[in-house]
């Protein structure tokens, strides 16, 4: 662990000031499941950890049937799958929340942290993208909001400027005809980094796809919103053929690397497989079928 200090602001303004003062060496501390590991490994120069969990907004969950859901950026996964509103209205969020790490990680890890860590394989980001999530950012120059699909700019890089941090993530209210699903592929059944992951969301008019979003991860420098997959579906009936076309679009969009977690061939193949599987299951959810997340959630 490199030499650092931990500060614990209680207001957004205080946090902005501390982050701003700390410059490049200051990092927000939410669940810590990534940033502490990074500091310990001395991967990046960090000399101040700004623990944002004492700021009420950062751990709040607000739900309104009209305006949708806002979750504090530092809210741990555990709180999400313990929250009936989230469970009932955003099952794809639960898919992600129950897949991250193990139970102990879920006691700390947050959607905001996962987003800000900006890993290509972040297991909440495709879900946030297909649910049209917006990151609400506070900083020395005031507040701004960025759609999640535009948030990450490269492996470990994102749009946050000096002194800025994510306060919350907002999701629009779900559509009664909609459904979403997140899946990932890992060699083990838990505790692994995605070889490839994917989320799909659809809104159906009968058999016809009215609206769709597909996002895949771990196959490019950032999680991708696959426009081609949506294009292959919207306005068309949801059939094996259209799903396959969307899957092919994902495969085409994927530009993975070969590393110890997966090969290019494998990842491209899985982009298609997971796109297909998430679309099929998102559609079933859209039709009211109960498809549980892992762990019986």
């Amino acid at each position: 662990m490199q030499a650092l200090k931990v500060v614990r602001p209680t207001t957004i303004a205080e946090a902005i000031e501390q982050l701003n003062e700390g410059g490049d060496g200051a990092r927000p501390l939410a669940g810590g499941t990534d940033v502490i590991v990074i500091a310990r490994a001395r991967v990046r120069d960090i000399d101040v950890l700004v623990d944002v969990k004492q700021i009420p907004e950062l751990t709040a969950i607000e739900w309104d049937p009209d305006s949708g859901l806002t979750i504090g950026a530092a809210t741990p996964c555990y709180e999400l799958y313990g929250n009936a509103d989230v469970v009932q209205n955003y099952p794809a969020i639960i898919d992600s929340a129950t897949l991250i790490g193990g139970t102990g990680i879920q006691g700390r890890a947050s959607f905001g942290g996962n987003l800000c860590n900006s890993s290509p394989s972040g297991d909440t980001i495709p879900t946030q993208i297909v649910l049209e999530g917006v990151a609400n950012i506070a900083g020395p120059n005031g507040e701004r909001s960025v759609p999640v699909e535009d948030f990450c700019t490269g492996p470990g890089r994102n749009v946050l400027g000096q002194g800025e941090f994510v306060v919350s993530i907002s999701f629009p209210a779900p559509d009664a005809s909609g459904g979403a699903r997140f899946l990932r592929f890992i060699p083990r059944n838990e505790m692994d980094i995605a070889v490839c992951n994917a989320a799909s969301a659809v809104k159906l008019d009968g058999d016809t796809v009215r609206w769709a979003r597909v996002s895949i991860g771990a196959v490019a420098p950032t999680p991708l919103l696959v426009q081609g997959a949506a294009d292959a579906l919207v306005g068309k009936p949801l059939t094996d053929e259209t799903i396959e076309a969307a899957a092919e679009a994902s495969k085409d969009a994927a530009t993975p690397i070969d590393d110890m977690r997966g090969s290019i061939k494998q990842r491209k193949h899985l982009s298609a497989v997971l796109t297909r599987r998430t679309l099929q299951q998102a559609a079933r959810r859209a039709r009211g079928e109960d498809i549980p997340s892992v762990g019986g959630h």
Binding site: V6, L29, G31, G32, T33, I36, V37, R40, A41, L49, D51, P76, Y78, G101, G102, T103, G104, I105, G107, R108, M191
Partner: peptide
Amino acid sequence: DGNCGACSVLMDGRLVNSCLVM
């Protein structure tokens, strides 16, 4: 680094990896 669970503790009743808590 949070990948084995040997350091599990309860913090305010919640299961956490104590190696990932400052």
